[in-house]
Design a protein around this nucleic acid. Structure first.
Lengths: 136, 136
DNA sequence: TCATCTGTAATTAAAATTATTACAGTACAA
DNA sequence: TTGTACTGTAATAATTTTAATTACAGATGA
């Protein structure tokens, strides 16, 4: 799996820590220590979910799109999630085998159950809860 | 993330479906549709956890190492798990930034919580439960 | 109209995953 | 005791995924 969730959380934490201010992708990138274009790309996705707002042009930048009390970590997870948490094998089981024929459906069902339990867990935590752990 | 969990479940399901019999890595590989050497490698790991037993030499092969009622899916998960379910970013946050300095610890804590909730979910399912879903 | 930012795509580089090949070691059986 | 058919394991190559880099059009304010 990749580090999209961590990157997203880092961005949101930064924005929450400086409410009202417009942070640039370069500033954010230097805190995370990744490329500014990646920050913009990641934000481009989070913006679709309303989590972040942006302003173009000179003196542009990024701010929270929603108050931190209203952002559940499950929302962040859903926004960045591409693969089931249990992973995803890329093999195509042999349909001539009785097990191979049925296993994908059963594994998919299980993967869904696990993803649901992750979401239920993350539903109990807001961005504000997470941010509150930081000491400045 | 990778497909190790799915591969492990596929192997265990095959072994459980033909109790007492010794299945070869080639047979297993053909059901999963991957390379036999990978099957042996994956089993090599599962064997460390007692989940699978093997017999070398001619007419060798693999069988269950434990009765399916005693194998929790959380055991399988733990055996194959290498990364936290939330993923793992490979950046090194900037220690000169107040957020960058603290965030790794908080994200790691969160990742642990999520992993725990996955394990708790998978603890409720045995391999026997999983196998029972198959119709032969 | 210039400077500084976002938005986005294209390309390259790096890392992780899976496949393949090879072969030593083990056990059974003729 | 020799051949056969497996496992166990490592080394290497191929593929896929992820992240970095570069580039530039478009927006906005001074």
């Amino acid at each position: 799996m990749n580090g999209q969730f961590q990157i997203a959380m880092h961005i949101l934490t930064l924005l929450d820590a400086q409410p009202g201010e417009l942070l640039s992708s370069e500033y954010i990138a230097s805190s995370i220590n990744i490329n500014p274009a990646l920050v913009r790309k990641e934000i481009s996705n989070l913006r679709k979910y309303g989590l972040i707002a942006s302003k173009e042009g000179k003196a542009g930048g990024y701010t929270m799109g929603l108050s931190p009390e209203k952002i559940l970590l499950s929302d962040v997870y859903k926004a960045v999630k591409v693969q089931p948490a249990l992973g995803q094998a890329k093999n195509k089981p042999n349909p001539a085998c009785p097990v191979g024929k049925q296993i994908s459906a059963h594994l998919d069902f299980l993967a869904d159950e696990v993803d649901t339990s992750i979401i239920n867990k993350l539903k109990t935590i807001t961005l504000a809860n997470f941010s509150a752990k930081f000491e400045y």
